[in-house]
Amino acid sequence: MSTVHAVVESPLGALTLVARDDALTALHFADGRHRGQEPGERTTTPLLAEARRQLAEYFDRRRTEFDLPLAPEGEPFQLRVWALLREIPFGATRTYGELARQLGHVRYAQAVGAANGRNPLPVIVPCHRVIGADGGLTGYAGGLDRKRSLLALEEPPAEDAGRLF
Rank of each mutant, 00 (worst) to 15 (best):
Q78F: 15
G97L: 04
H5P: 09
G104A: 14
G104R: 09
V106T: 12
G136H: 13
R101G: 06
F165G: 14
L47T: 15
A83L: 07
F77N: 07
F29K: 04
R33E: 05
K147I: 03
L121F: 09
L137T: 05
T64D: 04
Y108E: 02
A6W: 13
E38A: 13
A30V: 12
T16I: 03
P72T: 06
P11R: 08
E154Y: 08
Y58M: 14
A111T: 03
T3P: 01
S10K: 07
Y96P: 00
D60S: 12
R63S: 11
S149Q: 12
L47Y: 14
F90N: 07
I124A: 04
D145L: 13
V4T: 07
Y140D: 05
D31V: 13
G113Q: 06
V123D: 01
E50P: 09
V81P: 02
D22F: 12
T64E: 07
A51T: 12
G117L: 07
S10T: 13
F29G: 05
L17G: 04
R146F: 00
P120D: 04
L68W: 10
P120A: 11
E75P: 11
L150R: 00
V81I: 13
E159A: 15
L24G: 01
R42H: 12
P156R: 00
M1N: 00
L68E: 03
G136N: 06
E65R: 14
E155Q: 15
T93S: 08
F77Q: 06
R129E: 06
L103N: 02
D160A: 12
G40T: 05
H5K: 06
A158M: 00
G162M: 01
D31L: 13
A141F: 10
S149F: 15
L164H: 05
R107T: 14
T44L: 15
T45G: 14
V4E: 01
T43L: 08
H128T: 09
A100L: 04
E38Y: 03
L84P: 01
R101P: 04
A141R: 12
D160R: 13
R61F: 02
S10R: 08
G143E: 03
R53L: 11
H105L: 04
R107P: 02
A109I: 09
G97M: 02
E57N: 10
L70H: 15
V130F: 05
W82M: 13
I131F: 09
A111E: 00
P76L: 10
R107L: 11
P69E: 03
S2I: 03
R101Q: 10
A109W: 10
P69Q: 07
D160Y: 13
T64P: 06
D134E: 14
A51V: 08
E87F: 03
G136D: 05
R86K: 14
